[in-house]
Design a protein around this nucleic acid. Structure first.
Length: 504
RNA sequence: GCGCCCCUAGCUCAACUGGCUAGAGCAAGUGACUCUUAAUCACUAGGUUCGGGGUUCGAGUCCCCGGGGGCGUACCA
């Protein structure tokens, strides 16, 4: 292949400039720059300056050069930092032809630091009237088209740094992401939740239904799995006496990729002693509304051509009622398997041999109800069989106290009144182990240490998991998870691990 | 995994039914220009059409193999 990312003569030209700068005694990569203001601060503090107005207020600002408009003995340039943009006004009359010439040697994409007085041009653009400048870092590669930006999806994700330079929308989406995560931390801290970090490497993956990534510890000579959930360690901490804990952490699931699935993704899980799933539902609706307000300024988000209000309270709807409503059938996980199988077949819901009644009911819900739920809505009370970590429902032993918040036909998370009976938990684990032995790669075995912890006493508690990436997608109005991940998983580029640079 | 679609200059896109030297805008180079805003104007340069093979007088275009990506589907958060 050609040299990776070869960009033609332009790069050679800029490399030659580096040599020329060094020969002239200029370091193209100096060590630091003292700035007095960000671009946003300049825009804000000098907003009052009128068109054509000059000030004696000298500022030092640094950023990347995005546009240059040369106009004879004047040059206008657009400088952008992490906050905003500001125009640079360079005039022979101020700095002399020599400095102006040196400024014009800069290329689009270069990082520069400048010093000058704040002014506003006759045409009304707030500007820094350049007095001196310093190249802070030379860019060797040209920026994408200033007008069309970078649209090739593969390139945008592979070279996210360029995407962030070129596309306002990429920066908007990640600003929402950072705001959501900061809001979660603040929201939970205000409610006396403690943030903890638990292991990523597990001897036994558990806490969810998913196939894990397997790895190997050489010194210990043992296989390890990457975690698929945070749950079991966080509940151990409640045994230890923490009353409210949460973790925002990366979990890993060895499954297919799609617009909604990345092999690693960010999960929030939190657990609260003495609470149940009704408390967690209130927590979720308030948390999501607060994230929406903080990230977008509103609890209303656009959903295609409709508007979706996330303002609490959200309706609570039993799963079995919803199936009755949407599919027109009354089902219950205590019904004989054969009856439920017949219902699935009649409704065209695909099933596999060996599924129990709970799994069949869940499947009916997922196929006939969930895609049609605009939301937000809490779907409550799940079959016991498909919820091995949830407490049996106080009013119906075939169900558990569990809910999923559903928005736009997709679940945002999962929560229960946690199962804290160690004897019941052992039976549930053993049922899972039988599924695993029968070939279910998403079922897991008996976690003896977790059971031992439960035997020391887990207080009654509510637990919650939220897919943070999905929440960000919702608030940012994007439809693929890759848009909300800074570096989504991609196959390696051709030649990336091979004999790259064969011609270079 | 499976199905359908896409890959042309640094970026964004053209190129009829297989037909002349693969074009354009931006970016780049040279020149002009003291209030521009995607500055403008003139000129110049820039291509392994994703890679490999094949069919054909002739392939960006058709066929086969491979690579990467997108969408849908399955599983899930």
């Amino acid at each position: 292949m050609t040299e990776d990312g070869y960009v033609g003569e332009e790069r050679d030209r800029r490399l030659a400039k580096l040599d020329a700068l060094r020969a002239a005694g200029t370091d193209p990569y100096p060590v630091r720059f003292d700035r007095t203001h960000t671009a946003a601060e300049i825009q804000e503090h000098w907003e009052h300056v009128e068109a054509g107005g000059e000030t004696d207020d000298v500022v030092r600002v640094a950023g990347r050069l995005l546009l240059i408009r040369r106009q004879g003995k004047l040059t206008f340039a657009t400088l952008r930092d992490g906050t905003a943009s500001v125009q640079l006004f360079v005039s022979d009359a101020v700095v002399g032809a020599e400095v102006h010439q040196a400024f014009d040697e800069l290329d689009l994409g270069d990082w520069v630091g400048v010093e000058g007085a704040v002014m506003r041009t006759k045409r009304g653009e707030l500007s820094v009237k350049l007095r001196a400048f310093e190249l802070l870092a030379k860019a060797l590669r040209p920026l994408p088209s200033k007008w069309q930006g970078l649209t090739d999806v593969d390139t945008r994700f592979r070279m996210r740094y360029v995407d962030l330079i070129a596309n306002d929308d990429a920066r908007r989406v990640f600003a929402i992401r950072f705001s959501v995560i900061a809001t979660i931390r603040r929201f939970l801290a205000e409610r006396r939740y403690v943030e903890v970090e638990t292991p990523v490497l597990h001897a036994q993956a558990g806490g969810g239904a998913a196939r894990p990534f397997e790895t190997y510890h050489h010194a210990l000579e043992m296989p390890l799995s990457l975690r698929i959930a945070l749950e079991l360690h966080l509940k151990r901490l409640l045994v230890g006496g923490f009353e409210r804990v949460f973790e925002i952490g990366r979990v890993f699931r060895n499954e297919g990729l799609s617009t909604r699935h990345n092999p690693e993704f960010t999960m929030l899980e939190c657990y609260e002693a003495f609470a149940d799933y009704t408390d967690m539902a209130r927590l979720v609706e308030e948390l999501v509304a607060e994230c929406a307000r903080a990230a977008t300024g509103s609890t209303t988000v656009a959903a295609g051509d409709r508007e979706l209000s996330l303002a609490p309270p959200w309706p609570r709807r039993p799963m079995l009622d919803l199936i009755q409503e949407h599919a027109g059938v009354a089902v219950h996980p205590s019904q004989p398997v054969g009856d439920l199988e017949a219902i699935c077949d009649r409704l065209g819901v695909a099933r596999q041999a060996g599924w129990g009644p709970g799994k069949l009911v869940l499947e009916l819900y997922e196929k006939t109800v969930e895609p049609n739920l605009f939301g937000p809505v809490f779907v409550i009370d799940y079959p016991r069989e498909v919820s091995p970590l949830a407490r049996i429902h106080r009013a119906d032993p075939a169900l558990v106290e569990r809910f999923e918040p559903v928005v736009l036909g997709r679940e945002l998370g999962n929560a229960f009144s946690e199962l804290n009976d160690p004897v019941d938990q052992r039976q549930r684990f053993e049922a899972q182990a039988r599924l695993a032995a029968a070939g279910d790669e998403e079922a897991h075995g008996v976690d003896e240490d977790y059971l031992r912890a439960l035997e020391y006493g887990l207080p009654p508690c509510g637990g919650l998991g939220i897919g943070v990436d999905r929440l960000v997608m919702l608030l940012a109005g994007v439809t693929t998870i890759r848009e909300v991940l800074l570096f989504p998983h991609l196959r390696p580029e051709a030649g990336e691990t091979g004999d790259e640079g064969g011609t270079g």
